[in-house]
Simulated scan of single mutants.
Amino acid sequence: MTELGAAEHRFIEAMGLLFERQGGTRIGGRMQALLMLADEPLSLKRIAELLKVSAASVSTNIRASMAMGLVEPVSVPGDRQHYYVINAEGYEGRLRTAEESLKAFIRVCRSAMATPQLSGKHHLREATEFCEFYLAEMAGIAERWRASRAARPARTSKASKGRTA
């Protein structure tokens, strides 16, 4: 990946701000965007150069992105540096995390409603019913996505050539 153009910079900055609004770090969002744009695996050093940030910040944020399942390390034959790419299954992982979060929220609300003092609280019941409805609507989304993805013709990109996980 060579230098970034204006459109790439706008996307990268927008993603950084989005991540920050959602409780993440701006640099984490910027790195995610950069890796989404990259046609090849990027090293920590190259990520830092392109984003004009410190290598330490990239290292810290790449570990967080890996822990969330958004990024994965790959090796480049003949090169000992660490390289990173977008984890294509990472989006499903985020969906599962969101589902688990909703389920935990429902458990806490149901537990509260089980106590006599809180059993009649309208907002607890509404929140629980909404989350249960939402989960029911989300059921099967990942499976339908995988099926639609499998039905598409295989695509190869520069990023998938010559790399190993």
Rank of each mutant, 00 (worst) to 15 (best):
116 P>L: 14
102 L>M: 13
101 S>Q: 11
111 S>E: 13
50 L>N: 00
7 A>F: 01
39 D>V: 05
161 K>F: 09
28 G>E: 01
61 N>F: 07
46 R>K: 13
126 E>H: 03
137 E>L: 06
14 A>W: 01
145 W>S: 04
31 M>T: 09
72 E>R: 01
100 E>Y: 13
8 E>G: 04
165 A>K: 08
32 Q>W: 09
87 N>E: 09
157 S>D: 02
103 K>V: 14
128 T>V: 10
99 E>N: 11
160 S>V: 01
49 E>H: 13
157 S>C: 05
22 Q>R: 12
86 I>M: 02
19 F>I: 04
80 R>K: 14
48 A>I: 06
16 G>H: 08
60 T>F: 05
125 R>Q: 05
132 E>I: 02
113 M>T: 03
48 A>K: 06
37 L>K: 12
15 M>D: 06
152 R>C: 12
163 R>N: 06
127 A>M: 07
130 F>P: 03
34 L>P: 06
121 K>Q: 13
51 L>A: 06
148 S>L: 13
122 H>G: 05
128 T>Y: 00
40 E>C: 02
80 R>A: 11
111 S>F: 12
76 V>M: 12
64 A>W: 02
165 A>T: 05
99 E>P: 08
2 T>Y: 05
151 A>D: 14
99 E>I: 13
43 S>W: 04
76 V>N: 05
109 C>N: 09
162 G>S: 04
19 F>N: 03
104 A>P: 06
141 I>P: 00
106 I>S: 00
160 S>E: 15
54 S>W: 14
57 S>P: 03
28 G>L: 00
156 T>D: 10
141 I>M: 15
101 S>C: 11
118 L>R: 13
152 R>V: 01
